[in-house]
């Protein structure tokens, strides 16, 4: 074990939330401009987060803070693992783990809004998890490597071979970052039937932890996106385009229902990914 190697994941753990927060700030600003508003400053998410840490801690029960902390830890660990150049399959289990804690945290409280949100979060996981594993399988198919470091070194422009897969990954991103039309488990905007869904019962510092975990997840998914064009300028362009696409999709759609997602997205999405994978194999 080379200790000197550890500075990369350490730097990633510090840099990822800054990156995720900035993405959130840019998203809010551009969304506001698309809606004809002036919008908050870019640094707004950081003010929000810091303020939340300073609020009175009101936990519903002993488990809620624990699950919030575990969610944050899981998300941070996933980012560190990817930055370390770790195995993509382990990363997949880490992300599943992370979501599990979020769902547990939301279902350990008596609020029906939170519980219904947890159920929907699980359904979302049901939709995107198969796609994620297919994405990793396709990366392996193309590069012959399971470890992220190896993929990055010899990847090249994976995007050219896997456009359909990238489209699926984009939809996973839309689902995972809770953008319209898939923002039914916890919307960043108020005005929905479940209030804030899984986030309803978190408050103050615990909400801040979940929020921070969400930024880690944002950064993690964008890092996976970056693997599809393994060069510094290339991945920067790809990530920027993906974020821009996310913001536009968010503003172009109303919220659809989970029934619609299960009917129209659940099978076609992995199907599309599989099609791309088969095309890679033959």
């Amino acid at each position: 074990m080379n200790l000197a190697k550890l500075w990369v994941p350490a730097a990633a753990v510090i840099a990822a939330p800054v990156f995720g927060g900035l993405i959130a700030g840019i998203d809010r600003k551009i969304s506001a401009r698309l809606q004809g508003r002036y919008g908050p400053p870019i640094l707004q998410p950081f003010y929000d987060l810091y303020k939340l840490f300073g609020k009175d801690p009101l936990a519903v029960n002993r488990w809620q803070p624990f699950f919030a902390a575990m969610y944050l830890f899981g998300a941070a660990a996933s980012v560190a693992w990817l930055a370390l150049g770790g195995d993509l399959l382990v990363l997949f289990f880490l992300t599943t783990f992370t979501v599990g804690f979020l769902v547990l945290g939301a279902s350990c409280v008596p609020s029906p809004f939170s519980r219904a949100g947890a159920g929907r979060e699980l359904l979302q996981a049901l939709v995107y998890e198969p796609v994620l594993i297919l994405v990793f399988a396709a990366i392996f198919q193309q590069t012959g490597r399971w470890d992220a470091a190896g993929v990055w070194r010899q990847g090249g422009v994976l995007l050219a071979q896997t456009p359909l897969l990238y489209l699926c990954l984009f939809l996973v991103l839309v689902i995972k970052l809770r953008k319209s039309p898939f923002d039914f488990s916890a919307s960043p905007h108020a005005h929905q039937e479940l209030v804030r869904g899984v986030l309803t019962e978190y408050s103050g510092p615990f909400l801040a932890m979940v929020e921070l975990g969400h930024w880690y997840e944002t950064a993690l998914l964008l890092m996976i996106c970056a693997l599809f064009w393994s060069s510094v300028p290339g991945s920067a362009i790809l990530v920027a385009a993906t974020v821009a696409g996310l913001i536009f999709v968010d503003n172009l759609f109303p919220r659809l229902t989970w029934r619609w997602m299960m009917a129209r997205i659940w099978l076609p999405l992995p199907g599309l990914a599989l099609l791309n994978l088969i095309w890679l194999m033959v």
């Binding site: 929000d48 009101l58 905007h189 108020a190 005005h191 804030r196 309803t200 019962e201 408050s203 909400l207």
Partner: peptide
Amino acid sequence: LNTGNPKH
């Protein structure tokens, strides 16, 4: 921001 949730 409009939250509509007392805990936030």
